[in-house]
Design a protein around this nucleic acid. Structure first.
Length: 231
DNA sequence: TCATTAAGATTTA
DNA sequence: TAAATCTTAATGA
């Protein structure tokens, strides 16, 4: 395996306080791996042997319910750590991670987690900040599921993906990874049929433009309004 | 309001 | 061409 370039980690929150030498140490212990679209990086309940940092692509974090349906809990964007079971005092992964698009991730043996925390200033605090943000996101999504109408949940889900991964195009802002109507249904607790119907309607209204696995938000403001209006 | 069912069209591999 | 994805409409909880 070729030596990884230090610029890969420079400036990323968990490593921002480290000097060149420390980043070098960390990289020399890392393994880089490519993950094909749709393939699992790791699975819920399995031994949490490694933790990961996403360099490129997007990861869907999925949990399955007792009845077997899957729920998309959140997405991971480049630069973020994931699979950090150790930070949750767990020795198995709490969820399944699937490459939403072709992705590249670094990983380290989980046995190194404690020494990273002890040795590298800022690593622990930044990791726990990330964890806290994610818990908050999951929490507010759960609340939305229980209290908000489907239309608002779907609007909010689109906005969340656009905020995390949006790229500008001629028409508006495109969600930066492939996403099916069924995926959106799995994030919002509805069915692919309802998502399809909503997207068709919004397309007629000029709010979004979508093709298979691609969604462009052409009028973000109106989508924000839709995600908030009461009634 | 929304899930379910059904029956199809279209895109991709 | 088979499988995956998407669309639309009808029906009823």
């Amino acid at each position: 395996m070729p030596k990884l370039d230090e610029s890969l980690l420079t400036g990323l929150p968990p490593f921002s306080q480290l000097d060149r030498q420390q980043i070098r140490e960390i990289l020399d212990q890392a393994t880089s791996h490519r993950h094909e679209e749709g393939k699992a990086v790791f699975r819920e309940g399995f031994d949490a042997g490694r933790f990961f940092l996403l360099l490129d692509g997007h990861i869907r974090v999925v949990r399955s319910t007792e009845t077997g349906e899957q729920v998309i809990v959140l997405h991971i964007s480049p630069g973020q750590l994931f699979g950090i079971a150790r930070a949750l005092q767990r020795d198995t992964y709490p969820a399944t991670a699937i490459a939403a698009a072709e992705s590249i991730a670094l990983s380290w043996p989980t046995s190194l987690w404690d020494s990273f925390v002890a040795r590298y200033p800022g690593f622990a605090t930044e990791s726990y900040k990330t964890l806290g943000r994610r818990l908050g996101e999951i929490q507010s999504n759960l609340t939305a599921m229980a209290t908000k109408a489907v239309e608002k949940r779907v609007a909010a889900a689109l906005l969340r993906m656009v905020n995390q991964s949006g790229r500008k195009t001629e028409d508006g802002i495109e969600i930066g990874f492939p996403v099916t109507r069924e995926n959106i249904a799995d994030m919002t607790g509805t069915t692919l049929h309802t998502v399809s119907r909503l997207l068709s309607g919004w397309q007629k209204d000029g709010i979004v433009k979508s093709t298979r696995k691609h969604v462009v938000v052409t009028d973000p403001h109106r989508l924000v309004v839709l995600s908030q209006t009461t009634g």
